[in-house]
């Protein structure tokens, strides 16, 4: 008898425990969602700076870039370091050794080389955005991937995730020019720079919106860099305005590492600088310089690989 009662008591307590565990499990799933629901209701979307909704829906730009490799000789012809990088460094106060746009020299079959200016691809399936633990990097409706350095914790998982190596970390105290201090920080221009966070090309959205070409496209001596808007199907390198879809199709454009499925917004037209008179067997380019940094004091500089 007593045994039976004991057993029933045990059964009952077990049932109660299981019920409790079930409730705890449900709560554990539900609780993390609560702040999210609250913020959603409050209308603040995570990560993005609050932008005012225009009264009439305006046309949404969908920015893209086309780089015509037939016109890129790594600036061998003018005997200077790549001017896209130089202008970006100078215009955006990019510290050494970052090169937000970097002309890599790829081998071609047959022994020659081509230059491939590599920039943040503004992927539409961005691996870096997917892995960020705090929502410090996100895709804008215009298709640009931005970083909020005030949110970033510097874990560098996005750098591990980026298959193009287009993300850079401020390992030391980055040099900050005097001009930077007059600017209110925004993810769209990323200055003044902070230490211990991640930076990358942001497509200069403020310049685009003002109707100007970003520094890299302005500075290219061969006019190889087109900025484009998928919405209006138009592309320009500052010299001519062309139909984007035609430009891409007629020149068999491709995207870098397309097989990865990242869906970049940067297109390349194959070539090795032939239109600007480059011999593909002339190898090498001059190293990038960071002349603006001479004006700053107290910066702790770092090099590419350790020590």
């Amino acid at each position: 008898m007593e045994k039976e009662a004991n057993y029933q008591r045990w059964q009952a307590s077990r049932r109660r425990l299981l019920k409790l565990m079930g409730a705890a499990g449900a709560a554990a799933i539900a609780v993390p969602l609560v702040p999210r629901l609250l913020t959603k209701e409050a209308g603040a979307s995570s990560g993005e700076p609050a932008t005012e909704e225009p009264a009439t829906p305006r046309r949404l730009r969908r920015w893209a870039m086309v780089i015509d490799l037939r016109r890129c000789d790594g600036c061998q012809g003018i005997g200077k370091p790549p001017q896209c990088t130089a202008a970006c460094v100078q215009g955006r106060f990019v510290p050494e050794p970052m090169e937000w746009i970097e002309a890599y020299e790829h081998d071609l079959p047959g022994g020659g080389t081509q230059f491939l200016p590599t920039i943040c691809m503004q992927c539409q399936n961005p691996p870096c955005v997917n892995v960020c633990p705090v929502g410090a990097t996100w895709s804008t409706p215009e298709g640009i991937v931005l970083i909020n350095q005030e949110r970033c914790i510097g874990c560098r998982l996005c750098m591990a995730a980026c298959p193009y190596e287009r993300r850079f970390f401020t390992w030391g105290e980055p040099p900050v020019p005097v001009e930077s201090h007059f600017v209110q920080y925004s993810p769209e221009h990323q200055i003044p720079m902070k230490r211990g966070v991640v930076y990358k090309c942001d497509f200069c959205p403020e310049m685009l919106r003002a109707g100007r070409l970003p520094y890299c496209a302005q500075a290219c001596p061969g006019k190889a860099i087109y900025y484009a808007d998928l919405e209006e199907d138009v592309a320009t390198n500052g010299e001519e305005v062309v139909q984007l879809s035609r430009l891409l199709t007629e020149n068999a454009a491709y995207r870098y590492k397309e097989g990865l499925g990242t869906r970049p917004r940067v297109y390349y037209i194959p070539g090795y600088g032939e239109e600007v008179g480059r011999d593909p067997y002339t190898k090498g380019r001059l190293a990038t310089e960071w002349p603006w940094q001479e004006k700053t004091k107290g910066a702790k500089q770092w090099k590419r690989s350790g020590r």
């Binding site: 993390p32 702040p35 997917n130 960020c132 914790i153 510097g154 966070v197």
Partner: peptide, 24 residues
């Protein structure tokens, strides 16, 4: 592994936690 002060990192990891991220 992070440069920022530990309490700040913990705060951000807690408050802004994004369940889509492997670190989360």
């Amino acid at each position: 592994n992070s440069r920022q002060s530990p309490q700040w990192t913990i705060y951000k990891l807690t408050v802004f936690s994004r369940w889509e991220s492997p670190i989360a």
